[in-house]
């Protein structure tokens, strides 16, 4: 840094031990051109390929299944009685390297019980313009609320449409599930939910 004017170039360390101009080197044999016959074989390759089965998949009409563990769109899962698994802890958002997830948690109240336990995810957004489908959010999720589906058709015409809200991400209500909010299964704690003791909704959970 002392003499900036001439330090644009790094001076080589010239060693006089070895004169590199006199170092022996061997000429490496280059493979060179192939024989005419070998070159003509290339024509046979392209010719015979014409009669082989094509690799193309006629995509919109034919949809080949993806690999089993393909990273597709996310899904927010539910407990077997319909309550959401998400507890609004934001670990997924913190784990996200692309800053694609936004979570706002809120407290469960007796008349608005969305998930077992104290907290639930009030706002849950994933921005698919940013998401890189790395799956770190899935690994971060403590309640297995967030998983990935095999769905890959994620194209749309506006930026806003590609920010998926909680409604878009929540899994469907299956048989035996009740739409939240509703009270927890009678006599069960959030630990029971976590351990999988709740198998289906209890009739008393239904809000008339």
């Amino acid at each position: 840094m002392a003499d900036q004017n001439e330090s644009n170039t790094v001076q080589p360390h010239i060693s006089n031990d070895v004169d590199i101009t006199s170092v022996a080197y061997e000429k490496v044999d280059q493979p060179g051109a192939k024989s005419l016959w070998a070159q003509l074989q290339g024509f046979w390759v392209t010719f015979i390929t014409m009669f082989k089965k094509v690799n193309t998949v006629q995509y919109p009409e034919v949809k080949e299944p993806t690999a089993e563990r393909f990273h597709g769109r996310h899904q927010l899962n539910r407990h077997p009685d319909g309550l959401e698994k998400c507890i609004g802890c934001e670990l997924c958002a913190w784990a996200c390297p692309a800053d694609a997830i936004y979570v706002e948690g809120a407290d469960n109240t007796p008349d608005n019980q969305m998930s077992p336990g104290e907290r639930y995810g009030k706002v849950y957004q994933i921005n698919y313009l940013r998401c890189v489908f790395c799956g770190l959010c899935i690994e971060a999720c403590p309640t297995r609320a967030l998983t990935m589906t095999n769905e890959y058709e994620l194209a749309d015409s506006t930026r806003a449409k590609l920010i998926f809200e909680k409604d878009d991400l929540l899994g469907p209500l299956r048989a035996g599930m009740l739409p939240p909010p509703h009270p927890m299964y009678p006599g069960m704690t959030d630990t029971n939910y976590y351990n999988g003791d709740v198998k289906e909704a209890h009739p008393s959970q239904e809000i008339k």
Partner: peptide, 9 residues
Amino acid sequence: LVARMQMRV
């Protein structure tokens, strides 16, 4: 034809 030679349609 070129597509067929490259295993395309």
